[in-house]
Nucleic acid binder design. Structure first.
Lengths: 232, 232
DNA sequence: CGCCTGATTGATAAGTATCAAGGTCGGTGG
DNA sequence: CCACCGACCTTGATACTTATCAATCAGGCG
């Protein structure tokens, strides 16, 4: 069984509720309300590299990440991947996909991932009955939209170096100063190529902003203040 | 009074309700429900070039466009403007700004514009009491988010010519084949410069996709099918 | 009539992607 | 246990796209 790329597991109700409480969407809900939803959630494991869903698939489920990292991205017609966010514990993959027939991003496990999922209908019914959940979703989407607006401004208006510094800062704010990312993954996040990313990282290493000694698939920010100063 | 850049006017309740019914956010609400909200709305005129609100201003009002065109954009730190959408009758300027303390885009009247506005508190209260309005907002935001995701993919992954063709197609779908836009406005929408935009338009003229004879501040698409074929 | 905004074209430069060629590490299988 | 293979990292040379700078032109409005 272990060998499957994707399989169901069991989690205690207590643990499930905990995950939901960590999700900003449900922060204004009472525990008893959250419980109702959490009990309906099915835990599923996706092994590293597996798709949770793909751009264009029918949006049948709502997902929350319980464990691990999930890349949320889109592929351009010329084959490039652009990563919009890296979801972790408590993050939803598609609060938006509620109202749309099909997912409009792809999501892929960056390591072994556990998610909780709820059928679309149940989730929709719950949200329309609990206005604070709806307001939570609106707030989360507004925040996301703002981030994407800024990303666009960044890509159009700023140079790659600045974009990469912004990306590093964003990621560090979420994950801390040690990032488990390959250069390629960072490149996709910043909207550039692997080679360019490496060149910029080399520069930053020389300046002492990031650590010279970091294993493969790892980027360590050694001086966060200096990184921030680079963002002006 | 006429000379002010911005002033209140009066509109019949019937007209106000009509505008609200044209807004996709409220399409599932009963007329009597919409009425309650519409009656509270204040009509205001903004003369060409005036800001309705600016990025960073406290988000005190919710706006719907009644008449005219409104540019929704953001300015990068290097001074470039990126236009996200051009709002027209029935479009909201900031369904999102509900949950956020400050606006995160700027909105500017492209010609003389009439909007309806509602105080933030009233609007919030209404939405949390009417779940179908909340669901409408979620749907609208999901759609917008999807558009922005695609824009990012476009900007990072495709060449300027394709981006401009996409932009023209998007605009034509909304406004028809005659666009009242300067080259600069189109450039901002596509995330490029005026000069590059002109060069691409010249090419498209040669191919017969857009009309050679169009006045200043006007772009006429003469062959929409051919434009679509350019998007592959 | 002249000014001001928008449109146009050309020349140049800069920023990045692309292509190419190793180098290094970690894990896997013999 | 060692050797090999594949994934990742790195650096260099080159080409291409597009921004930038500069100059001119055209039309509407006061």
């Amino acid at each position: 069984m272990k060998d499957f790329r994707r399989y169901k597991i069991t989690l205690s109700d207590r643990v499930k509720v905990e995950v939901f409480k960590q999700c900003q969407i449900f922060k204004d809900l009472s525990v008893s309300e959250t419980r109702k939803l959490a009990f309906d959630a099915t835990p599923i494991v996706f092994k590293k590299g597996t798709f949770i869903f793909r751009d264009g698939d029918p949006a049948d489920f709502f997902y929350i990440v319980h464990e691990g990292l999930v890349q949320v991205y889109k592929t351009s017609s010329s084959g490039k991947n652009i990563t919009f966010t890296i979801a972790t514990r408590g993050d939803t993959l598609n609060a938006s996909a509620l109202s749309v027939e099909n997912y409009f991003v792809s999501t892929q496990a960056m390591n072994d991932v556990t998610v909780l999922r709820i059928g679309r209908k149940e989730f929709l019914a719950f949200v329309s009955r609990h206005s604070s959940a709806a307001m939570g979703i609106i707030a989360a989407m507004a925040q996301r939209l703002n981030i994407e607006y800024e990303k666009i401004v960044d890509i159009v208006g700023e140079e790659v170096e600045l974009r990469l510094v912004h990306s590093l800062y964003t990621l560090a704010s979420k994950f801390g100063t040690t990032l488990s990312l390959t250069r390629q993954e960072l490149a996709n996040f910043a909207g550039t190529t692997t080679e360019t990313t490496i060149r910029v990282l080399s520069k930053l290493k020389k300046k002492g902003v990031i650590s010279r000694s970091a294993g493969r698939g790892e980027i360590v920010i050694s001086n966060l203040t200096m990184l921030r100063n680079h963002m002006s």
